[in-house]
Amino acid sequence: MRASSIAMVMTDPTLPDHPIVFANDAFLRLTGYSLLEVMGRNCRFLQGPDSDAAAIADIRRAIAAGVDLTVELVNYRKDGSAFHNALSLSPVRGKSGEVRYFFATQVDVTDQHRQTDELRHANLALAAALETATTLVHEIDHRVKNNLQMVSAMILLQSLDRSDLRLRDSLLDTLSRVEALSTVHHRLHRSGDVSRFDVADYVRDLLDDLVGATGRTDIRVRLDLMPVLVQAGKSAALALLFNELFTNALKHAFPPGTPGTLAVSIAREATCIVAVIEDDGVGVSPTATRLSTFGQSLIQTLSRQLGAETTIGPMSPSGTRVRIELPLAIVAAPV
């Protein structure tokens, strides 16, 4: 006990004022007192202004009841400096069960408290910085969305003033792409987490809008969407890719008077996220996967930006199947 590196004392509850009757060198080093200065004194001399009254009351109750106790409280050294003391107190009983002494160890845990305080302050500062950054991002997204709405309005006005039907259709296609981007920013703006984008929710909303805009009641939609959260930085490219594929399917797969079903599934596999878009419409020609139109070129460009593999092919007996393999790297890290 004398040689231990852990501070130890023994007190005698049978003597007046329950004095210290043993203190090892580690206790003297911890408190800064000499052996003569601590012997015969009650341990309360280590207490001071910041010593927790509740902890002191717990110590008194444990001594009165003769039971073990572990507690932390602020104590003071001889030079007046404070330290956080992890105190363990145990009764030492005689042969007949009476309490002869109390044995106590003291461990200075000030550094741990300091590190905890520093970590708490750092977390508070980080949370405040994150809140500020989130507010700024929301404001930027809000402004971008408003600007996109202005662009949409100008494109719509131009399309109404054109006699060239091909040019008008091209402008309306561009309008659809701008509105898809606007929807992305709207989702990010109203989301509590601007760092992640919910693909499944976006697909549901986009299909509702696109199918509703056709005015067709004979086109059914079947969805099997696993929730997938991707990084916000990938949201625009992914939204444009889905918009292009859905628009092409609704425009070309089901001529007037031809009912059908558009099925979309999203699932996570071992090495990638797989999205499959299937329709039972009129099918795709053998040359449909070539870069013969702006839409097809856009699909290929967006796939490269996402690091995705997109394949388009016919189904049997009719229809078209699109398979998109998205890398797991675009998935947002959990929070």
Rank of each mutant, 00 (worst) to 15 (best):
A332I: 04
R177Q: 15
S159A: 15
H113E: 11
D108Y: 02
R196H: 07
L156W: 07
P327Q: 09
A200S: 15
I6K: 03
T261V: 15
F102I: 02
D164V: 01
T134A: 15
V9K: 01
I330K: 02
V228Q: 10
P16V: 02
M315I: 10
F103K: 00
H252C: 06
A54R: 12
M226C: 13
L238S: 08
A54P: 00
L250K: 02
L172F: 01
L223W: 08
M39P: 00
V228C: 11
P314N: 10
S159E: 09
V92A: 04
V194M: 13
K145M: 13
V331N: 02
C43D: 02
N243Y: 00
L148H: 10
A267S: 12
L69G: 06
A153F: 06
G283F: 06
Y101N: 03
V71I: 15
S191R: 08
D111E: 14
T134L: 12
A26V: 06
L262F: 04
Q296R: 14
D17G: 02
V282Y: 02
I155T: 12
R177P: 00
V284M: 10
N85V: 03
L87G: 05
T247L: 01
L241H: 06
S316L: 09
S4I: 04
G94D: 14
D201Q: 12
P227I: 12
I140V: 13
Q296S: 11
A133R: 13
R321E: 11
L188Y: 05
A65E: 15
H138P: 05
L298Y: 01
L36S: 15
D17Q: 07
R41T: 03
G32Y: 08
V284L: 13
H138I: 09
L206K: 12
D141F: 13
T116C: 00
I266P: 04
V322A: 12
L73R: 08
V92S: 03
E325M: 08
A129I: 05
N42R: 03
A237W: 01
A333R: 11
L241E: 08
P286I: 09
F246A: 14
R268Y: 00
V199Q: 06
R321S: 10
S88W: 03
A249Y: 03
G215K: 03
R187E: 13
A127D: 12
S163N: 14
D198V: 04
V38C: 11
A308T: 02
F102D: 03
L245E: 13
F197H: 10
